[in-house]
Simulated assay, not measured.
Amino acid sequence: MFTGLIQALGTMNPLGGDSWQITCVSQSCELIMQDLAYGDSVAVDGVCLTVEEVLKDGFIATASPETLRRTTLGSESTAQTYVNLEASLRVGSKIGGHFVMGHVDGIGRLVAVEQTASSWEMTFVASEAIARYIVPKGSIAVNGISLTVAAYEAELSQFTVAVIPLTYAETNLRYLIPGSLVNLEGDILGKYVEKLLYSGNRHTTEPEDNSLDEITPAFLAEHGYL
């Protein structure tokens, strides 16, 4: 599990087969490398990878064919650009973003970027697999970065985020241009809510009179959630 607060930038280069070498290249590499160990999880552009060998300035991990197919890590441009790095959340650590699982839902594409007086407004188009989890003011992970949805156009499956200068400077968002592909992960809370709403009590194994009530707006209001 991660928080979506990027700790360092790195590069990703193929070693043959499914193995990749991830090298940390930013000045903040100590945040990644200080206690990195075999078997640890690291989010690489939002994709959870397992450390198989620790190197002086990075690590080796395996990205399966399925992972490469479903994420931007399989893009030909990956080895030529920077990737965002974040070590897994430690018990007791601060949670400054939102819970990011490192399980990418789909690939999105940057549509437009505009610099404002206080931020960069970036608009992305999302696939149907991720669009249903996007809500205004909700959380979304873009290349592993925890961001807040400022606006959402359902008809176009497009959403806009406002990126503060610190995030823009310390992540690979500053290298994106219209047309660039990104990894998208919806908020895990939305996925559980969707599961409960659509499953209702159909999967319960309890007797009918002990089954869960259907979750509706009225049910939520009755139990203090609205």
Rank of each mutant, 00 (worst) to 15 (best):
A154W: 01
D105P: 00
G58E: 02
N143M: 06
N84T: 08
E206P: 05
T123E: 10
G179F: 08
V111Y: 13
I130S: 12
T216I: 00
A154F: 08
M101R: 12
V113I: 09
I134H: 04
L212E: 06
K56Y: 05
G39F: 02
L110N: 08
A221S: 11
A150V: 02
G106H: 01
G10S: 06
R69Y: 02
Q27R: 15
L196G: 00
E76R: 14
S19F: 10
I145V: 13
M33G: 12
K56H: 06
A79M: 10
T78S: 14
G17I: 09
A129N: 15
S180C: 03
M12Y: 12
L49F: 03
W20L: 14
G138K: 00
F219Y: 12
A63Y: 02
Y133K: 05
I107W: 09
V100H: 05
K94Y: 07
L49S: 11
S139K: 00
R174G: 11
N210K: 14
V44D: 08
D105A: 01
S41A: 14
V47L: 01
L220N: 00
T11K: 12
I140M: 00
V104P: 12
E208H: 06
E222S: 06
A169S: 12
K56R: 08
M101W: 11
A126V: 00
E206C: 07
G224D: 02
T67H: 02
Y192Q: 10
I22P: 11
T11D: 00
E76L: 11
E30G: 04
I6H: 04
E214L: 09
K195E: 07
